[in-house]
């Protein structure tokens, strides 16, 4: 009985650690994405930008491995039988956000969009809001496991920031299409802005699901 109890708790602790590490990856990817865009705006596809881009790819790869490990433990060890489908969905939603950070950064790498300097500060603002949104999503998700009362607080922040990204991206796109740069550049920039903004939408969708799981989890 004592052995069974110890084994049960060691398995639980191992899974908790993996889940915590996965949440760390969300925050790492957000911070690295921010750094990646900043490097691109400073010096285009420079060596430093390539290095940061590679870091982001590695984070995404590590997060995928963690996700698979969590999925495997959730189902093979039967630790939270009635909530494992919810936890699995949450982890997959967070993973989509990490993937999107990597994809958008890679899009900068491949397409090398020409961005006039007058838009730098607004793109930085947009990236700041999107990464804040993802970080708050990660904290809300982490709270789901430890302190349900905090989930609502951080979810509200995600909703607020998502709305802010809509406004910022709208203003940015309007200003781009009002400018004299070639239409091809306008469309390219508009697509990239949509892709960045889309990350906040993904975070919002993830929070919508999280709030439903929170109601289900509350005793």
């Amino acid at each position: 009985m004592f052995h069974v109890k110890l084994n049960l708790f060691s398995k639980a602790k191992a899974l908790e650690s993996k889940i915590d590490m996965f949440h760390d990856k969300v925050i790492d990817s957000a911070m690295t994405f921010k750094k990646s865009v900043r490097e691109y705006l400073n010096a285009g596809r420079s060596d430093e930008f390539k290095k940061v881009n590679k870091q982001l790819r590695q984070i995404e790869h590590d997060a995928d491995q963690l996700r698979r490990d969590i999925e495997n433990r959730l189902y093979s060890q039967n630790l939270i039988p009635d909530l494992r489908a919810n936890v699995l969905e949450m982890v997959e939603n967070l993973d989509r956000v990490i993937n999107r950070f990597d994809e958008v950064s890679y899009q900068f790498y491949i397409e090398q969009p020409e961005i006039p300097e007058i838009y730098f500060s607004r793109i930085t603002d947009l990236v700041e809001q999107v990464t804040d949104c993802a970080e708050n999503m990660s904290i809300a998700s982490r709270s789901f496991f430890r302190d349900l009362s905090l989930v609502r607080d951080y979810s509200q922040k995600v909703y607020f920031l998502e709305h802010e990204t809509d406004l910022t991206s709208g203003r940015l796109k309007k200003s781009i299409f009002d400018s004299d740069i070639p239409l091809a550049n306008k469309l390219q920039l508009s697509t990239i802005i949509d892709e960045i903004e889309n990350i906040a939408d993904l975070a919002e969708d993830s929070i919508d699901r999280l709030l439903i799981f929170t109601i289900k989890r509350d005793i």
Binding site: E16, I80, L83
Partner: peptide
């Protein structure tokens, strides 16, 4: 108790199982 102890969901389930 749950509000103040902030036990992780997975550990919580282990305790509930016992």
């Amino acid at each position: 108790l749950l509000r103040h102890c902030r036990v992780h969901l997975v550990s919580q389930y282990s305790w509930v199982r016992i």
